[in-house]
Simulated scan of single mutants.
Amino acid sequence: MLADSIAVLDFETTGLSPAQQARATEIGVVIVEGGQIVARYQSLMNSGAWVPPFIEQLTGISNAMLRSAPPAAQVMAEVADFVGERPLLAHNASFDQKFWDAELTRVHRRRLQPFACSLLLARRLLPQAPSHKLGNLNQWLGLPSTGQAHRALADAEMAANLTCFMATLLREQHGIAEVSHDLLCSLQKVPAAKMAQALEKLRGQPHS
Score class of each variant (00 low, 15 high):
His132Met: 06
Gln128Arg: 03
Asp182Asn: 03
Gly147Pro: 00
His132Leu: 04
Asn136Lys: 03
Gln113Phe: 04
Leu153Ser: 08
Cys185Trp: 01
Ala129Ser: 09
Ala122Asp: 04
Ser180Asn: 11
Thr168Asn: 13
Leu153Pro: 03
Gln128Leu: 03
Glu172Leu: 12
Ala129Glu: 06
Arg106Pro: 01
Leu170Asp: 10
Ala156Arg: 02
Cys185Pro: 00
Leu141Met: 07
Cys185Arg: 06
Trp140Cys: 05
Ala116Gly: 13
Leu153Met: 06
Ser180Val: 11
His132Trp: 06
Ala149Ile: 14
Leu125Asn: 08
Arg123Thr: 08
Phe165Cys: 01
Arg111Val: 07
Leu121Glu: 09
Thr163Pro: 01
Ala102Cys: 09
Arg110Ser: 15
Leu141Arg: 04
Pro144Val: 02
Thr105Val: 02
Leu143Gln: 13
Pro114Ala: 05
Phe165Glu: 02
Gln148Glu: 15
Asn136Leu: 03
Cys164Ser: 07
Leu121His: 06
Arg109Leu: 15
Ala159Asn: 12
Ala122Ser: 15
Glu103Asp: 12
Ser186Pro: 00
Ile176Leu: 11
Leu141Asn: 06
Glu103Val: 13
Gln173Val: 05
Ser180Lys: 09
Asp155His: 09
Leu119Trp: 13
Met166Gln: 10
Trp140His: 10
Gln128Glu: 13
Met166His: 03
Leu187Thr: 15
Trp140Glu: 12
Arg171Ser: 15
Ala154Tyr: 03
Leu112Gly: 14
Arg124Gln: 15
Cys185Thr: 15
Ser180Asp: 12
Leu153Ile: 10
Trp100Pro: 00
His181Gly: 03
Val107Met: 07
Thr146Arg: 10
Ser118Leu: 10
Leu125Glu: 04
Met158Arg: 11
Leu120Ile: 03
Gly147Leu: 00
Arg124Trp: 09
Thr168Trp: 10
Met166Arg: 04
Gly135Glu: 14
His132Gly: 07
Ala156Gln: 08
Leu125Ile: 06
Asp155Phe: 04
Gln139Pro: 00
Arg106Cys: 07
Phe165Ala: 03
Thr105His: 03
Phe115Pro: 00
Met166Lys: 05
Cys164Leu: 05
Thr168Phe: 04
Ala129Arg: 01
Leu134Met: 06
Pro127Gly: 09
Leu134Phe: 05
Leu183Tyr: 11
Ala160Thr: 11
Gln113Ile: 11
Ala160Lys: 05
Asn136Cys: 01
Leu169Ala: 13
Asp155Gly: 12
His181Val: 05
Leu187His: 14
Ala167Gln: 08
Pro130Thr: 13
Ser180Ala: 12
Leu121Ala: 12
Glu157Trp: 02
Glu103Ala: 14
Leu134Val: 10
Leu121Ser: 07
Ser131Gln: 01
Leu162Pro: 02
Pro114Thr: 03
Gln128Ile: 02
Arg171Gln: 14
Asn138Leu: 02
Leu121Val: 12
Ala156Ser: 11
Ala167Met: 04
Leu162Cys: 03
Arg110Met: 14
Leu143Phe: 04
Leu162Phe: 04
Arg171Trp: 07
Glu157Gly: 06
Asp155Asn: 09
His174Lys: 05
Gln128Trp: 02
Lys133Pro: 00
Gln173Arg: 13
Ala177Met: 14
Leu137Glu: 05
Cys185Gly: 08
Leu119Glu: 11
Gln173Pro: 00
Leu153Asp: 09
Gln173Cys: 11
Asn138Arg: 05
Ala122Pro: 00
Cys185Tyr: 01
Ala129Lys: 01
Leu141Gln: 07
Leu134Pro: 01
Arg106Leu: 14
Asn161His: 06
Ala167Glu: 10
Arg110Thr: 15
Pro144Cys: 02
Glu103Ile: 12
